[in-house]
Every structure is written in C-alpha cells, then in structure tokens.
C-alpha cells in the first residue's frame, strides 16, 4: 500500500514538474519576444522623433498647455533643456526644491501665461 501511494505522489510530482518546465519555457520565449519588441519600439521612436520634418512639427501650442492644466489657479512653467541635463528634486521633508544642471548648453525656462493671447 505504502509503496503504491509513494508511486502516486511521484507521478503527480513528475507531471507537475513537467508542467512547470513547460511554463517556464513558454515564459522565456514570451520574454524574449518582448525584449525584441521593446528594442524595435525604442529604435522606431528614436527615428520618428529625430526625423527633421517631424522635429519641425513636434510642438504643442501654448493653448494646448493651458488646456492640459486647465485650472485657473495653476502656474505652468515650461523647461526646455539640452539632452543629459540633470534634474534634482529635494526630499519633500527638506523643502520644495528643484535644481537643474546642464553640461551641453543653456536651459530655457518660461511661464505659460493664462491670457488668451496664444503667446507664451
């Protein structure tokens, strides 16, 4: 009897083992597929945003900004900085502080006015 029971547990374990092996195998494949898609997507995005024609057309209007932060009591500040600019935000417990540090060129900061002139 004991012998028989042991065999049954064995069999269950073996089939569970097989099942898990198959699942891990499927997941490995799924992850590889994802990795490939992510790197393709990254490349596509880079080509898309670096295309000169797209660069020219890649803008928002000041009115878009105002509508996106549509509360009348909000001050909206726009920061345009060169690549690799570092932005540091302090711990809230140490006050509300933001520092910007660029190495490649000047940083532009301006306010988005809330009048209807459509001009920033």
């Amino acid at each position: 009897n004991i012998q028989w029971l042991g065999n049954r547990i064995d069999a269950a374990l073996v089939s569970r083992h097989k099942e898990l092996q198959r699942e891990v195998c499927d997941l490995t494949e799924a992850e590889e597929q994802l990795d490939e898609l992510i790197s393709k997507c990254n490349l596509q995005l880079r080509m898309l945003t670096e295309d000169p024609q797209n660069k020219k057309l890649g803008y928002v209007r000041c009115q878009d900004l105002r509508q996106s932060f549509d509360s009348p009591d909000q001050l909206v500040m726009v920061i345009r900085a060169p690549p690799e600019t570092q932005m540091q935000v302090s711990e809230p417990s140490e006050g509300y502080q933001v520092s910007l540090k660029s190495t490649r060129g000047p940083i532009d900061v301006f306010l988005c006015p809330d009048d209807s002139s459509g001009v920033c």
């Binding site: 660069k55 890649g58 209007r61 726009v78």
Partner: peptide, 13 residues
C-alpha cells in the same frame, strides 16, 4: 505661440 518637444512642465498654485 508654440513649444517644441522635448520639454518638462512644472506646475504649482
């Protein structure tokens, strides 16, 4: 009247 990407927004009261 326009702002080119990329940019960052900081908003506050």
């Amino acid at each position: 009247s326009i702002i080119h990407l990329p940019f960052i927004i900081v908003n506050t009261s």
